[in-house]
Simulated scan of single mutants.
Amino acid sequence: MPQALHRGSHGDPVKHLQDALIAQGYYVGDADGQFGPKLEAAVGYYQSCNGLEIDGIAGPHVLDYLGVVDANDSVHVQLPDADVISGPGNYTVHVTGSAAAQGVRVVVWFRGANGDHHAEVTVNLAANEATPAEVAVPSDVIGTSGEYHVLVNVFSSSGTSLAEHTGVVHVHHEGAAATQ
């Protein structure tokens, strides 16, 4: 993957960036592999929503946060399609590795108005297969309603960082509704 994608860049790396922004709702349009003004604005919006320097350039932080990878990367993280948590349960992240790996730690941080909360699980990866990592949603997250920024870190059994990915989840807590 190039160090940075910017206006005028083109090809598969740009298409991967567009696909990632479309999947998270930051870009509307076709993934045509062309980095034009519309994609530049979408990258800037993504940067502003995630506390990054706003320059419209998809540098290493943007590409890492979005989980944009190429065929040479060893681990890829995919967040759940549903962006709503409405009760106790698991937040399932899919982790794909280019090689089998034992004892991979998946840590999910939920960052919201009531602070940072995390949970983790250890999984064994099969080569080139999406492995579900079912992380129990912390009770402090389930107990409140609102938007949480999600940060997923994946570590090898020796503690080496393998991947990082971000997203947003909305939590709806039944107890937060007004009572009569």
Rank of each mutant, 00 (worst) to 15 (best):
Q102C: 07
N124I: 13
V137T: 08
L17D: 07
Y91D: 05
V106Q: 00
T144Y: 00
N114Q: 06
Q24I: 10
L151H: 00
A100Q: 10
R111K: 10
L21Q: 03
F110K: 02
N72I: 14
G97C: 03
V68N: 09
A178Y: 02
H118T: 06
Q180N: 03
R111M: 13
H118M: 10
Y27V: 08
D81E: 15
Q78I: 08
A82W: 03
T166W: 14
E134F: 09
Q78C: 10
N124P: 09
C49L: 07
D116V: 05
G11L: 02
A119E: 02
D12E: 15
L39Y: 03
A176H: 07
S161P: 13
P80F: 11
L17Q: 01
E129A: 15
A177P: 02
D70E: 12
F155N: 04
I142A: 00
T92N: 05
S161L: 12
F110G: 00
D32I: 12
V141Q: 00
G11C: 05
A127S: 14
V43L: 07
D81P: 13
G167Q: 05
N124Q: 12
H94M: 09
V154I: 11
A41H: 01
D55W: 05
P88C: 01
G146W: 06
I22P: 01
L162S: 11
D64V: 03
E164Q: 14
H118I: 03
V68M: 10
S86G: 15
V106S: 02
A127Q: 14
P132T: 06
A126W: 14
T160P: 09
T92G: 02
L17T: 05
T122F: 02
K38P: 02
S158R: 11
D116W: 04
T144Q: 06
H117R: 01
T179M: 06
A113H: 01
E147A: 02
A71C: 10
R105T: 09
S139T: 00
D81W: 11
Q34N: 12
V137N: 05
A99P: 13
G167N: 04
D19W: 04
E164Y: 10
A101S: 11
